[in-house]
Design a protein around this nucleic acid. Structure first.
Lengths: 187, 187
DNA sequence: ATTTTTATATACAGATTAGTATATACTCAA
DNA sequence: TTGAGTATATACTAATCTGTATATAAAAAT
């Protein structure tokens, strides 16, 4: 496990989020990371490989953080779906929030055959499946429907926050989610 | 009004949506449009200007289409919010749907100071304000809140559809919207 | 018919892109 | 201290990027 490798991943992640993926050259990445292209291409076969790894690391980090939050702060399965939105809000309003990587990546690589797009779609799907598990545990009747609706709310709110920082979109998504969750549980 | 100018705008719009903005060079645009760079730069000062005009035309076309749909098919202000989602679904499921331009553009130009990002944010804001007008006309108590929630649903569903065509996200967003609208009207 | 203007085509400039070949510095073992 | 192996730095392709200077064709006017 190389320190420079981690550094390159971190720098690339930050630059991709703040300047865009296609607008960030490998020269810029190595310059900011304080290394050279030879080193970068030693650890990553290509820029596309680097992008894929950045996405995977971002998703893994987010999942780890979210699971930890849920396990620590919620006990009853019925309240986990609600609490989830509190954590999303906490994540989004953190000063180092730079957006949801796979949302931006899928927009930069619109072709569904593209590996970056495919990974983005896969991550979005995984997140939706995770929501479905929570919905099942909470006792929702149509868990898949609720999960899709909640994922739309979350990704829509994050999209809005990427568009304009401090929009407060998550706050309103949370209110909407509460109504939808209650509706799905009582019926 | 030049035919070639329109052609360039149309071709650029399509290529931007299907391949991404930064991944589409002006050489490709003029080649597909059947013209040359000199002509492109006669009509547009720079690629950024072209991007901005493509965005503006896309937004204007969408607004025109949506307003026409609403005016033709809905009379009672109370049912317009609901009907809106039918039209969004119709728009999204059309075979020539290529995504919502300003959503993708804002992802490709994440910097909030960037002119393309600013225009994208402005268009998103205008759409939200339009929703707020509909909400007011429908008699919603907190029209701005409902408008923001519905815009999150719509943009989130479109984002999902961009990620995976045929996801059916709009159908579920519509169901969610129904619940939220009823909730906002009865209270 | 000839001149003047306008639009298009070709060719090019300079910067930047991803990726690599070669050369130098460094680390660790004997 | 010397030698083998590894990591880094420099320099370089070849392609592509936006934008432009120059040349040619078309159109309009006198």
């Amino acid at each position: 496990m190389s320190l420079l490798r981690e550094k390159i991943l971190d720098v690339a992640s930050d630059l991709f989020q703040t300047r865009g993926i296609n607008s960030t050259g490998v020269d810029t990445i190595v310059a900011v990371a304080g290394t050279t292209k030879m080193t970068l291409y030693k650890y990553f076969r290509s820029k596309e490989d680097l992008i894929l790894e950045v996405l995977q690391k971002g998703h893994a980090d987010f999942n780890t953080w979210l699971h930890q939050k849920l396990n620590k702060n919620t006990k009853k399965p019925s309240e986990r779906l609600q609490k989830l939105f509190d954590f999303i809000e906490e994540w989004v309003t953190a000063p180092d929030f730079r957006g949801m990587a796979f949302l931006k990546a899928s927009a930069e690589f619109p072709n569904e055959e593209n590996p970056v797009h495919r990974l983005s779609a896969e991550q979005s799907k995984q997140f939706r499946q995770f929501l479905a598990e929570l919905a099942v545990d909470a006792g929702a009747k149509d868990a898949d429907s609720l999960a899709l609706q909640l994922s739309i709310l979350i990704e829509g709110a994050i999209q809005a926050e990427q568009m304009k920082r401090g929009s407060g979109a998550v706050k309103y998504a949370k209110k909407a989610a509460k109504i939808l969750i209650e509706n799905a549980l009582e019926n």
